[in-house]
Computed example of a mutant assay.
Amino acid sequence: MLKFKFLLWAFTQLLKRQIKNNPDCTRYVESKNLVFQIRTVSGVGRYYVIRDGAIRSSAGLVANPQFTLSFKDAVKGFAILSAKDSQAAFLRGLGSKDLIISGDFQEVMWFQGLTAFLQPPKIVSPYDRTAF
């Protein structure tokens, strides 16, 4: 459970850094007003507020988020959120019902775009002809 809580807190810190240091990320969030939460079915979680080009979060849950990512438990949540193949892990979690998404799916898709800023840049090999 502690690893899951730490991951949710660290997520905010990583996004703050990206918003501060990456102009593309700054533009992505600058006009967004969004409240969402990531939680377990048992009620452990954190909510996030994106407003005025900044993100903040607090432990606990909020009454009316625009969307919620609910994990079966903290172990599944940590595994899915920290997976190297994050998009595939999300899809597997949805298929197995280890992850349930509720709320505004347009906002969920926007959020997926935001998480892309946390991915390490792809390094292109000079021998990779598909990159050209």
Score class of each variant (00 low, 15 high):
residue 115 T to D: 07
residue 97 K to G: 03
residue 122 K to W: 10
residue 5 K to S: 02
residue 104 D to R: 09
residue 68 T to K: 00
residue 119 Q to I: 11
residue 46 R to P: 00
residue 11 F to A: 02
residue 111 F to A: 10
residue 17 R to T: 13
residue 85 D to W: 11
residue 86 S to G: 07
residue 68 T to V: 04
residue 37 Q to A: 01
residue 31 S to M: 12
residue 65 P to S: 06
residue 95 G to W: 10
residue 92 R to Y: 13
residue 50 I to H: 06
residue 9 W to I: 00
residue 123 I to Q: 03
residue 94 L to V: 05
residue 35 V to L: 04
residue 66 Q to F: 09
residue 97 K to P: 03
residue 59 A to S: 15
residue 69 L to Y: 14
residue 43 G to N: 05
residue 38 I to K: 11
residue 119 Q to N: 13
residue 86 S to R: 05
residue 53 G to N: 08
residue 56 R to M: 05
residue 66 Q to T: 09
residue 72 K to W: 00
residue 9 W to P: 01
residue 69 L to Q: 14
residue 98 D to T: 02
residue 21 N to S: 15
residue 34 L to I: 05
residue 114 L to S: 11
residue 90 F to P: 03
residue 86 S to E: 06
residue 17 R to Q: 13
residue 56 R to I: 11
residue 87 Q to D: 01
residue 26 T to N: 15
residue 9 W to D: 09
residue 121 P to Q: 08
residue 79 A to T: 14
residue 100 I to M: 04
residue 30 E to F: 14
residue 112 Q to M: 12
residue 27 R to Y: 13
residue 53 G to E: 10
residue 75 V to C: 03
residue 48 Y to I: 02
residue 3 K to A: 11
residue 19 I to H: 12
residue 18 Q to T: 07
residue 4 F to V: 03
residue 53 G to Y: 10
residue 42 S to H: 05
residue 57 S to Q: 00
residue 129 R to C: 03
residue 132 F to C: 05
residue 98 D to E: 13
residue 94 L to A: 07
residue 2 L to G: 01
residue 84 K to Q: 13
residue 7 L to V: 11
residue 71 F to I: 01
residue 8 L to P: 13
residue 109 M to E: 13
residue 34 L to M: 06
residue 97 K to L: 09
residue 122 K to I: 10
residue 99 L to Y: 04
residue 51 R to V: 06
residue 74 A to V: 06
residue 94 L to R: 13
residue 2 L to F: 00
residue 12 T to K: 11
residue 52 D to M: 14
residue 125 S to A: 09
residue 105 F to R: 03
residue 56 R to V: 05
residue 129 R to Y: 04
residue 132 F to V: 12
